[in-house]
Structure formats: C-alpha cells, structure tokens
Amino acid sequence: MSETVASVSALIVKTLLANPKVPRDINGSSKIVEDLAFDSLAVMNFVMEIEDTLDVSVPLDRLADIRTIDDLAACIVSLKQAS
C-alpha cells in the first residue's frame, strides 16, 4: 500500500468537506471534537466512512488517543502497515 499520512489526511479532509455542516477551513491539524463540533457518536460514524474508503478497521480504543485529523491519518497508516 502506498498511503502516506499526508495522502490519508487529505482524503479525510475531502470526505469531511462533503458534509455541509463541517467548517470550510479545516486542515490536518484541525481538532476533530473541538473544531468540528462532533460528538462521540458523530466521530464514530465518520470514522466508519473513512474505514470503508480505505478498507481498514480502526478499533474504538485507538480513537481515544486521536485529537486531530493528522492523528487519525497516522493511526490509519500504522494499521494498514501492520496488516
């Protein structure tokens, strides 16, 4: 697999921007809960969409350590490398 943190992060931003409620000025360092005003359920549901696109499952306990979009991208890249 050729995904990098930057490419995954860009893909996450693109997926998020498809939702009209998400602020337009987000980037890799945006905080998912604070800057996007997502509650815990919204975070889990949005991660599910990303999982489908990238064919990966992110265990829920990993989400606890994730604050920014780049954190999520790094987590996904490490899961893909492990598999």
Binding site: M48, S57, V58, P59, L60, D61
Partner: peptide, 8 residues
Amino acid sequence: HAQVIRFR
C-alpha cells in the same frame, strides 16, 4: 481489554 470494532 479486547479490541473493539463497530459494524453498520
């Protein structure tokens, strides 16, 4: 302490 994965 298991890894938890949600499905639709």
